[in-house]
Amino acid sequence: MWRYFAKRLGIALLVVITVSVISFGLLRLSGDMAQSLAGEGATAEQVTAIRQLYGLDRPLVVQYFDWAFDAVRGDLGQSLVSNQPVFELIVSRMQVTIVLAVLSLAAAIAVAVPLGVFAAVYRNSWIDRASLGMAVFGSAVPNFWFALVLIYVFGVQLRWLPISGSQSWENFVLPTITLSTMVMPQIMRLTRGGMIEALDAEYVRMAWAKGLSPTVVFFKHALPNAILPVVTLSAVSLGFLLGGSVIVESVFSLNGIGSLAYESIRRADFPVVQSILFVLSFVYVLLTLVSDLINARIDPRIRLN
């Protein structure tokens, strides 16, 4: 197990380093940072002065290693726009994003797992078709469109729920519904597939032969085996939701990490964009690592292979 852990950890570190190098390089290639800081009207001399003041005249390799060593110590630099420490900015915005991501994942699991189970148990029935229809709808509908429809129906017409801000739990209802539709289809399909496989397995036939009740067969014998890949997917989905809520946060004015990323890209605030990419990739890799380890712990075949 330890050997497996060390191997996965090594791969995870390599991924984080690679992402940081690529994002650093791409951001530098996307335009002249000193020019963006100085503004459109700045003269060449003024741009040069800004370049020196912010240390942008140093070789790229030096700039990267300076940033990377500071990042490892928890210092992600300062925002070029507000001069605030980037770490503080990210922490202040992360809370909303984490709440939204966790709620969305919980809502997706709460709906998708039972649906998947019923779709498998009553396969090829109207329940199965309706569940698959919902999955197709969730996969096909752009979330910004769905968000606007929810705003119009529940915010503008019915006036049941607030449509912007993060002051109360009510503010999270519509964004949670929107975001959960992004991950619900995969969880539902995976649960259905896993359940169908489990229900056809010999140990389930044995359970039926023993005269166990359907509830015990479905939820005690079949589901625990079918749910394993869902655990992995959920961990990865959480990472995806943390980084993929840019549009939903913007539409519902939640002002979390997603909207910070959007604003920072718009304002060419490169240290913030760089750090958000780094933090999100770190979280994503960490969650993937944790799910790998859980799977390896549960299923010995994984660590032995």
Partner: peptide
């Protein structure tokens, strides 16, 4: 002063 980055949300509000 309320930050509402999305123009459509501003319209709805």
């Amino acid at each position: 002063f309320k930050p509402l980055p999305d123009a459509q949300t501003q319209i709805a509000e």
